[in-house]
Design a protein around this nucleic acid. Sequence first.
DNA 1: GCCAACGTTGGC
DNA 2: GCCAACGTTGGC
Length: 165
Amino acid sequence: MTTKRGKRTRRYWLFKSEPESYSIEQLERDGSTFWSGVRNYQARNLLRDEIRCDDGVLFYHSNAKPMAVVGIAKVTKEGYPDPTQFDASDNYFDPGSDPADPRWFVVDIAFVGKAEQPVTREAMKERPELTEMMLLQRGSRLSVQPVTRREWQTVLRMARLQENW
DNA sequence: GCCAACGTTGGC
DNA sequence: GCCAACGTTGGC
């Protein structure tokens, strides 16, 4: 009998971004980026403690026309302190954060693919498999959210994308 | 542009 | 520790 060890099951997440501030096109050009500026403790906890290398990320355009999952990315570096919190000239500067005990964290993500067909919020609402999705729950404002494997697979199929890493 | 749902702040 | 006031998010 073989022992299962070492390999954590890949998990899945959804990152929201307003395309005017950072779009999937920008991520495609950049190749990879660090996901900075998250200033919510619940999301911080996910970035710091839960999100791991190789996890999958649905990239969602919020406050946009249309609102949609527009691509996927993968995590390439696990949680580390968000440098913008210590930069007094940055919009995300947090004077209350102690460098010895940083308050805010980021992960690195790399572009994987653009949705061949953007998966609009409207389309997601119509899918029975997605009715429990956090994104679609009323009042859900979390900008970094967990996504189940089933939701991930459903959205990828709708986008005509494949997990290819 | 509106406003509901949250999160944060600060007086007590 | 409570909670009213305020600010922000983000769908509609």
